[in-house]
Design a protein around this nucleic acid. Structure first.
Lengths: 195, 195
DNA sequence: ATATGGTTTAACCATATGGTAAAAATGACA
DNA sequence: TGTCATTTTTACCATATGGTTAAACCATAT
């Protein structure tokens, strides 16, 4: 595999596991199977690495949502497809939840403006859909940013909470990954749908 | 003010701001207005400090919820009171959201078992309420842990997202704190209520 | 074979950090 | 005032970390 790819993949895993501050360049290097200095030669410092990782994550999400948003559907259906997409991405890419949540909690301290702009586009499209749904009497009005935070947040946190639940014998099982997506979709749909 | 109190308060603020790894003992000391070594003399190392902080946070939450859960009300009303309480605590104590979210994202790496047990009690009570509500045909069935994650998570994240939104000119205002609570309550209520 | 350009590596540096020991200060009490 | 226990502060240590440098390595072309 391309060496940049290997470094970036390793960095993604380590940043997801330990956060920006907790990640160690040495660990990333070791996990990528390269010397530490090689990272600096090919990509740059910790900041550059992290920016690149963030950029890849948001690109994946935004690209998937772009597709969903441009498919002709009724507002509620579109919203459900949006929820499903978020769910799927998080289920398939376990590094997404921790990275996203950590960015929110730090107030986006390390997010480059470009990533913010991507997010902004998503909120914008979401806003249009919700507005249309409200006009048709199919949806309750909600601030699209709040709905996005609620959706992405719940999807991400419920996955992260799996680790926590394993320390609670009584609910060790929690919800299996397959059921989790459907449950979240139901809850979030009811939260906004007028039925 | 008692010196332990001052140290713990400062530690709470710093841990909330920077997380466990990012918090610096020197910063906590400076913010508490004491010498660094004084912290070690009175409380102990970073671990002890953080444990104590976590303990105080969960105690506050659990105590408030205990009161709510023991008030005689119908299931949906109880759930709404629960949502309101979570909202109020997070609105009044801005350090709660970041600490809670960071603990979830690290899988509770620093949580002592005692704190887990408190959380478990909350989930248990929540489970009883939901079960009763489902039997009465007033609520949709949901795993109580999922509902708790969704509730606490949405309340916490939507507050943390304020910092993010300030970097998005178009939605800089987001939602004012007063309206936030009501919006979340509506959304979460609809998510679980059968109406 | 040898020179050349790109790539990797070992060794190193400056700095920061959690933590500690011992001195200094403080205060209660005889 | 002198003594003793408690508390605070200064000075310091061992370690870890992001980052850099100069040497070593390697493939390719001449």
């Amino acid at each position: 595999m391309d060496i940049n790819e290997r470094i970036l993949n390793a960095a993604t895993r380590v940043f997801a596991r330990s956060g920006y501050g907790g990640a160690r360049m040495a660990e990333i290097a070791s996990e990528a199977g390269v010397n530490k200095a090689t990272i600096y030669y090919h990509i740059g410092g910790k900041d550059d690495l992290y920016r690149e990782v963030l950029h890849r994550v948001i690109k994946k999400v935004a690209h998937n949502l772009d597709y969903v948003f441009s498919t002709p559907m009724k507002p509620l259906e579109k919203l459900q497809a949006y929820i499903e997409t978020i769910n799927r991405i998080m289920a398939e890419n376990p590094y997404v939840p921790p990275i996203v949540i950590r960015e929110i909690v730090t107030g986006g301290a390390h997010i480059p403006q470009m990533v913010i702009d991507e997010l902004l586009k998503v909120i914008g499209r979401l806003g249009e859909i919700i507005t249309e749904g409200v006009e048709r009497g199919e949806l309750h009005p909600v601030h699209p940013f709040l709905f996005h935070i609620m959706t992405a947040g719940s999807c991400a946190l419920s996955r992260l909470a799996g680790a926590l639940s394993s320390r609670m014998p009584q609910i060790k099982d929690f919800l299996p990954e397959e059921k989790l997506g459907d449950n979240l979709k139901e809850l979030l749909t009811r939260a906004i749908s007028r039925r």
